[in-house]
Design a protein around this nucleic acid. Sequence first.
RNA 1: GGGCGCGUAGCUCAGUGGGAGAGCGCUCGCUUCACACGCGAGAGGUCGCUGGUUCGAAACCCGCCGCGCCCACCA
Length: 900
Amino acid sequence: MSDIAELETRTRFDPAEVESRIFERWLASGLFHPAPEGDACENYSIAIPPPNVTGSLHMGHALNGSIQDVLIRYHRMKAAALSPCSRTKWILGTDHAGIATQAQVEKALAAEGTSRHKIGREAFVARAWEWREHYGHTIVEQFKRLGASCDYAEERFTLDEGYARAVADVFVRLYEKGWIYRDRYIVNWDPGSRSAISDLEVQERRETDTLYSIRYDLDGGGSVTIATVRPETMLGDTAVAVHPDDERYRDLVGRKAILPLVGRHLPIVADEYVKMDFGTGQLKITPAHDPNDFEIGRRHDLDQVSVIGEDGRMTAEAGERFAGLAVMQAREAVVAALEEEGRIVARDLYEHEVPYSHRSGERIEPLISLQWFMDMTALSKPAIRAVLDGDVRIVPDNHRRVYLDWMAAIRPWCISRQLWWGHRLPVYYCETCAHVNVAVSEPDGCSECGGRLRQEEDVLDTWFSSALWPFATLGWPEQTPELQAFYPTDVLSTARDILFLWVARMIMMGIELTGRPPFSDVYIHSVIQAPDGRRMSKSLGTGIDPLREIERHGADAVRFGLLAMSSTQDVRYSAEKVQQGQALANKLFNATRFALLRVHASLGAEAAAELEPEPLPSTVEDRWILSRLVQIETDTAARIEDYDFSHAALGLYDFVYGELCDWYLELVKHRLGDRDGGEGDDADCRSREALAATLLYVLRQTVALAHPVIPFVTEELWRYLDDSNGLLAGCAYPRADGSLADLEAEVELERAIEATVAVRGWRDSVGARAGASIPARLCAAGYEATAPLLARMARLTLVDTDTPGTQSPPPVQSDATSTRRQAVASVAIPGGTIEILSAEGLDLDAAERRRSAAEQKLRSEIERVRGKLENPGFLAKAPAAVVEGERERLRRLTVELEAL
RNA sequence: GGGCGCGUAGCUCAGUGGGAGAGCGCUCGCUUCACACGCGAGAGGUCGCUGGUUCGAAACCCGCCGCGCCCACCA
């Protein structure tokens, strides 16, 4: 135990002074780095959603970090209490984040006046690794600031050698199953990153464009009119379609339209995709640049004419006189040319969804490209089953259906990316016979002809490797001790924006490759919005930096605040909640400081050191606080296990403020002796020891209970509260001791609290001086044990107590000479009144106003309850307990009214 | 077009069948020997609107108004 005397001058909890010192102790202790022992069912593990190496800590990380750390710390402590053999591990690592990292490195190169194409692939990748070595640990260091108890000794990276092997291994397995294949297909081309991206990386934006109606002549006379917002793609038209049931156009089917500007003859086909009631019901078909048209083209075996290239410009081959123009320029030029020929029949403003790249922010250009795909149908089935059967639980469960709906309609996944930073596909093309060799490591030569091999240039979608995260980080496919000890993990905590992108794919891959879902719970946490309700984003200037908040208020405050504001839905950032957390840390610090200093002063260090570690309740307030402690211990554990972090945090706050500090400490202060070591009101030494034992027990339990939420201040306090020199982070989590529950003490003390508040309110209204003690008579039942407490807390000098219904002698001083002094005012309290016996210096008119206001309130309340009890329907149908409760209330209110 | 969710005190949010709550802000009082990042006391709400179910609705149901998010290939 540290020297208590140090606390004398520390009147505030100063996070900056404490945090790094404590974190170093945690790291050095090895508590965060469990040996790979025990089995995964007993052990508790979480795989962190790997932050991007390019990233820095934002509010989402801070919230999710706080959530996971509460779970990890809680379970680590719970294991210490219940099953000392079980281990707790928070698997740490970062993601190589293909596009994001490549963009950063390219930016750096550009600043140096060079580019990736100038330096070549090998040099570029080397440069990217250098970049990662340099900047890749920033975010991990930032997690430490938050107090996150990850296993820092085992940090993983998705491009590490072992991990890369696992990725290649998976690719080979799924290729051999026939689920991974190569196809020329229409993809979402991102001109920004010059790569294909998956459907999930496309974000639609509502935009208003011009809808052009264009007349195409028919071969042999007549015309059709088609509508498009992308006239530049007409150069790639290879058909016109109408609905097969459309009476108007029945005889058009089979004829030819002549493509303006180009002259190509376009077959007119019938396809059910065409909406008869949209526009003219005649649709131009551009299979190479529209996903729907692509499908129609396949159905009707239409030509594919690519007019837009991967550079986002009109192609030389089919771009006609517009070749080389960027898409938007081409649009204008095409419209002008059509205009000149008088083919634009109409222009209308048209609002529609336009696809943009989530990564680069540029407009997606759908085009046909040779890419690698993964068929997901077989993988999705057991992943659906797992959620339906409850093997994977999604919390909150309204996301369950979203997951199931998406899974049921799952589509092939484009897994190849035209980038350099990532896992290069383990695919080797034979330069001689063109055979496709797929193998974990490069073969010596083609398996067919022994010819020279050339590895595929493309890399895998970053999410392909992320999908393996919970097991690849533990050494899979090797059956490592880590894998056996910690896989499957227990919970995956994340924001919902990556439910499909990542979580669903982990479930599919985990089941396929390990035979088990990678976690049993998925917890979807809130998205923290800016205080004004907008998105938190750097570009909008609405972001709030969690590190700055930690510097200002302390990590405990930020953790508490984020947990307290989190919810099952999105929430606005609340600086007040962070302040509340800061206040809590400071309050707990000062309460402990006060208790320890007083105990040591009044008992002496030696006696203090020999105190019983168990509570020794000797008074009603001792019994009360111990009973309340049972409640908060039960509630906090249940709330953490239910992922109800906000109530866990706020519940601790309410206990520390509303019960421990505001009442218990105030009630027992006088029994502790003064700070110079003099005796307090309670001169009985044994009673003082009993109080000290109870008080320190309550503080130790409270501090330990709060540790998962506010680890720094609690760990700091533990230095003074615990003489074993151990770290709180490795101690047992407090468990409610049911034998301390004491309903009688709770009823008695809560009555006294209510009465105290009533008297204080009255005092305030009559302008009584704060320090003055007022003579009064207690005329109420149920205060046998608490009258002295009430007198002290409400600053009353109680004389002549009159406690109806009891025989026990009043435990207060008795004024024998003036047994029946006339009351000058009366304050209603539960079970009766307090009669005020002296009006000296008091504004009794104000007292009367207050009294009559109270009376009016009581009368209307009584009216309401009486009305209820006179309602035959209520008496007949309401549960007996409710009816009895109302009767009891009426009795109580009536007593109070009579007393007034 | 489909789905999910929200609307409660000035602000941010809890409360989901039986006495309208918290934090911050506001007002009044307090240098009460742990904490002035403190202590005590207060003011402040037709619980979005309408109809229904019920002995009883902020809560459950129908509808409406307002707001947010997700999914979706109508040019």
